[in-house]
Structure formats: C-alpha cells, structure tokens
Design a protein around this nucleic acid. Structure first.
Lengths: 114, 114
DNA sequence: TGCTTTACATAGAAACTCTATGGGAGCGAC
DNA sequence: GTCGCTCCCATAGAGTTTCTATGTAAAGCA
C-alpha cells in the first residue's frame, strides 16, 4: 500500500510554485499536477491553497499572468516567472536547503556538548 | 561573516522540542540552547514560541513537567518525554524526513514528464 | 547598587494552509 | 442531446503555528 500524501506544505508552497513556473508558461492546474508528479505523489496541493498562493505571488511581482487556452482547449490563466521571481526562487531554495540540513543535523545530534 | 539565523521553524518546532527532551529532564531554557547548538546556530527558537509550545506538548501528553532547581540554582520547570511523546517523535521524524526528501526531489526535478 | 544572565509566561498579530463550496466549459459515452 | 467526468478558476472562513512585544523575578557579579 502506498504511503499517505503529505498535505501540509509548511512554508515551501511558494517555492514549489515558483519552481513549477520556472520553465515557461503554465496554468494553475498544471502546477498542481507537476508538484504531485515531481515529488512522486508525496506532496499534494489543494486548490484552495494553490489559487490564493498564485494571486499572492502575482501581487508581489514574482510571477506574471496572462489568459490563454490550455492544451485541452479550455480557458486558463498562464503564469510566467519574472526576473524578480527568479531571484526569489534562488533565495528561497538556498534558505530552505540550509534550514532542512539544520533540522537533519539536529535529528542526529548528541544530547549535549556543553 | 556568519550566515543569518533562520527563525521560521515551519512545523518542525514540536519535533525539535521532543528531540531535545528525549535524553532526560531539561528545562525550557536548555531546550532553546540545545536547538541552537545542535543546528550549529542555524536555527533559533524565540521564547515566545518556546513556552507556548511546551504547554501545548504537555497538554497533549507528550511531555511531562516537574518543578525543580537548575544547574545555576534557579527555579526551573523540567520536562521529560512520555512514552506517548516518544511515539510521536518517531512519527514526526518519519513524516518530516519523507516531506523533506520530496521537496528536494522537486527542486531537482525536470520540467514535465507528461 | 545596578547590570547581565537565567528562566518562565502571556497577549496579540501575522502568515500560511486547509476545508468547504461554488461556477463554468469541453468532451466522450450512451 | 444530455449526462457525467475531467479540467480550470475562485473565494470565504477557520484553524494552527510562530512571531513580536512585553512582563516578572531571582542569582550572581562588579
């Protein structure tokens, strides 16, 4: 049986969305699909989290939106990473990596060195 | 120059506190010191986050508290991990590890396999 | 006496993510 | 030709977590 999907994204949602958008114009639905696929179905993003997040990122000028037509001939909003967003992605990636390594270090740390 | 301390613990605070308490009775202040030390000063926990978290964990029955005297002869509350808390620590560690690996995978993932 | 460190605590704000819910349009099956 | 499924967007409201700001108090040292 497969392990359960983690739904709590704990501050990594913006970073993952920026990453998903970083290869060219994609619509929201595709972002959600990509995250599931790229994490091997470990992470799932709810639509109620996704769309507010997209608007948030757009407001901050990290992504730009444009209406268009999807591969399935449906009306969809396509997002692109702005230069500002690319810088933000780099920053968040570096910060998160540092954070994650620190947590791993703590989980393997000895009682007290003092 | 040293890298800045990350203050946003994003859902790992409980786990780190449980870990800090897992080797025997320690008081809150020592928990904070241990986290800084174990993460090589990458993570810092604010007191305004620490004490509410300790009460939360105690309420859930994951840690037990007892008043005592610190090494410096000060009045302090000492916390111990309960069996329930030990199970919780195992669970949170497994979940977080899975989560972190998934995020790393996404950060290195290709555009689209579809 | 006054300063620093240790130690605990709460109130309130801010941020994030989820649950719940809604609508609409394309497309294939029947 | 309409029923249902998938795709696609969206908002309101709630819940949790963590932070900022602030307060208390005692030990120890200069």
């Amino acid at each position: 049986m497969p392990e359960p999907t983690v739904e709590v994204l704990r501050g990594t949602l913006d970073m993952l969305i920026l990453k998903a958008v970083s290869w060219g114009p994609v619509h929201g639905y595709a972002v959600a699909r990509w995250i599931e696929q790229a994490t091997n179905d470990v992470l799932r993003i709810e639509e109620g989290s996704l769309y507010p997040a997209l608007h948030r990122l757009e407001t901050r000028g990290w992504i730009a939106a444009e209406w268009g037509t999807s591969e399935n001939n449906r009306r969809a909003k396509f997002y692109t990473l702005t230069p500002k967003g690319r810088a933000q992605l780099r920053l968040e990636t570096a910060t998160w990596t540092r954070f994650a390594y620190a947590v791993f270090a703590a989980l393997e740390a000895p009682p007290q060195t003092t």
